[in-house]
Amino acid sequence: MVIKITDHVTRCHTNNDGEKIFNLIKPLIDKGNKVELSFNGIDSITSSFVNSAFIELLQYFEFSHIRSRLNFISTNKSINQIIRKRFKFETEDRQKLELREAI
């Protein structure tokens, strides 16, 4: 299923923008659907948007499940980098940070 982001938000900059997208895609992934999110018409995103729209999914699904069910299309280099970097940190580096804090 393809969801065009600009049908639902006019920008991808705030937590609120992200929450709207999260509320669209989470029920679809719950039902086992594959979701393709189209960024057509969007040229920039922020970390707040990515956190609220996508990183929040890690509270409900394994990363491997998210990767198998969620894809992004009509993106640019900057958007791809921010999404990949955020997921990498939250799935690999945050644990190291928390372990270091615990010690």
Partner: peptide, 23 residues
Amino acid sequence: KEGYTTKSLPTNRGAGLENLLGF
């Protein structure tokens, strides 16, 4: 530094200023 957040919102994860530096 990425990951250090005051959690002023539940979804905040301490990435904004690090992302600013990145660009």
